[in-house]
Amino acid sequence: MKLTLKIWRQKNAQTKGNMQTYPIDGIEGDMSFLEMLDVLNTQLIDKGEEPVVFDHDCREGICGTCSLQINGEPHGPDRLITTCQLHMRKFNDGDTIVIEPFRAKAFPVIKDLMVDRSSFERIQQAGGYISVNTSGNTIDANAIPIEKEHADESFNAAACIGCGACVAACKNASAMLFTAAKVSQFALLPQGQVEASRRVLNMVEQMDKEGFGNCTNTGACEIECPKGISLENIARMNREYLSASLKG
């Protein structure tokens, strides 16, 4: 198929960027979206031009490296997948595709479509862990039975890949879904109870410091999340936060 790509180009964080147009031909439905960009980049290199920079790594939807706002949607038009799992069969011959970086104050552009998501790192460093030593001298893994439903729900929250689509989807650029997923994973397990108060207070404080916006319960994050992380996690985090604040 023949397509017209409109792509955000920006040399670095200091310079201003703009949209540029690239016609492209010979794209097949079986190609992934990133393979389509590979084709474009090979053509640009052959012409002596600079290829488009974008983040990607595992190309199987689990590392959370790839991003891209495609026609206004994080990870493009398909549901429950990342950009690297999006296939060109979702587009039609003659389409124009607009490709931008994830937009948020807390995700500054590094180059072209590549953004800096280290704010997510700092939120997790603020409390996204259980303080046990890694000596292996813990109790037997089966010493504490955990209700299957709780274990499964905890897993569902832990399935977050930290890609930032929730932030990119949100009109306020809020990181509530991301932070809530991590808080929930531990809040749902007995091992996570001991530090629960400190964890939620510290992580939320760091989230606010990074310049993410507030949550206004729009729910766009849940719809765009490639891993289907539920809004219930935000409700759970709010409860955790409230009870931790009251404990003072």
């Binding site: 292996g136 299957k148 905890s154 531990f186 397990l189 091992q191 996570g192």
Partner: peptide, 16 residues
Amino acid sequence: DQCVAQGVPFAREYGG
């Protein structure tokens, strides 16, 4: 043992 203590949500049976 270590991973469970860290909060890794392994699959469980109905008995927990």
